[in-house]
């Protein structure tokens, strides 16, 4: 329902002579924590054996130096149904990889990371996803009737609760467009989302043009991860404005078993994924 908030926001900006500018603000400095980006995504139709887990640390908010890769950690994932253990090898650049992962829909997996004498763990179940039913481009849909947008549709299976993560990344842009989807209001229907960029000179945002390519990924996810993403996306898009909730710490599924106060950031997800690239004509 994030568009409800968007309406209020645009009202605020439009109704009056408001103005925005970038300013210097002094922000507090919190503790440095381990960040675990353990996204074991199994692309439909592939073996899914190659997987990467990223470890880094947090940095002060305005630090331009964001290269905070963590090396020297021990990383492994266990399939709790088959008890198979997959060991991830330290690539010394913050990434830990394996070639032997075996994805099984519905199985539960446990992640274990040992770093600086503390043990971090997380457990997640692998969720399936439906394939895209169509990917098209148009101008007349979306917010602006003259701007290009890409529309993606997929069929939601009826009578079961499904949660999705939909990610658009334009190859010309730094930032992705993220959607979290819950089938509560759309159960059993064909669901359509669009990604459209509205020109904004102040922020240097340009509309899509023919030739632009967008990478689109859709993942089946757990309810807890959906809730995590909802907060992540809401805060990423509008933290601080008067019509959004007080921003709060995101609580992922990774815990520190040795020192619970030193909670890591990030999430351990195990998902089936469909991925396409789309080039505007």
């Amino acid at each position: 329902m994030k568009f409800l908030y968007k309406i209020l926001l645009s009202t605020l900006v439009l109704g009056v002579i408001s103005c925005t500018d970038v300013i210097e603000v002094e922000v507090p400095e919190g503790p440095i924590r381990l960040t675990i980006e353990a996204s074991l995504d199994w692309e439909k139709g592939t073996a899914g054996n190659q997987q990467t887990i990223l470890l880094s640390t947090s940095t002060p908010y305005f630090d331009s130096q964001r290269n905070s890769a963590v090396t020297g950690a021990t990383v492994q994932v266990t399939n709790n149904n088959s008890r198979t253990v997959f060991t991830f090898t330290d690539q010394n650049d913050g990434s830990y990889t394996t070639n032997s992962f075996v994805p099984v829909i519905g199985n539960s997996y446990t992640l274990e990371v040992l770093y600086e004498g503390e043990r971090y763990t997380a457990t997640e179940t692998m969720f399936a996803v439906s394939d895209f039913s169509s990917i098209t481009q148009s101008k007349e849909d979306g917010e602006d009737d003259e701007a290009l947008e890409v529309n993606v549709s997929f069929e939601d299976p009826a009578d079961i609760e499904n949660y999705y993560f939909l990610r658009f990344q334009s190859r010309n842009d730094q930032l992705p467009e993220l959607f979290y989807v819950k089938d509560e209001f759309v159960d059993g229907n064909e669901v359509t989302f669009y990604y459209e960029k509205i020109e904004d000179e102040g922020e240097n945002i340009k509309e899509f043009e023919p030739g632009d390519t967008v990478d689109i990924a859709l993942l089946g996810i757990s309810e807890d991860y959906h809730n995590y993403l909802r907060l992540l996306v809401e805060q990423f898009e509008s933290a601080g404005d008067a019509f959004s909730a007080t921003p709060v710490a995101l609580v992922g599924n990774c815990i520190n078993t040795d020192n619970p106060d030193n909670t890591p950031y990030g999430y351990f997800r195990v998902s089936e994924k469909v991925e396409r690239s789309f080039t505007f004509e």
Binding site: I32, S58, D63, R167, L175, P176, L178, F236, G266
Partner: peptide, 16 residues
Amino acid sequence: TYPNGQYEYEGISIAS
């Protein structure tokens, strides 16, 4: 509430 740090996740900077 101001952020007290940031970390990388999904290719974006997440505020803590």
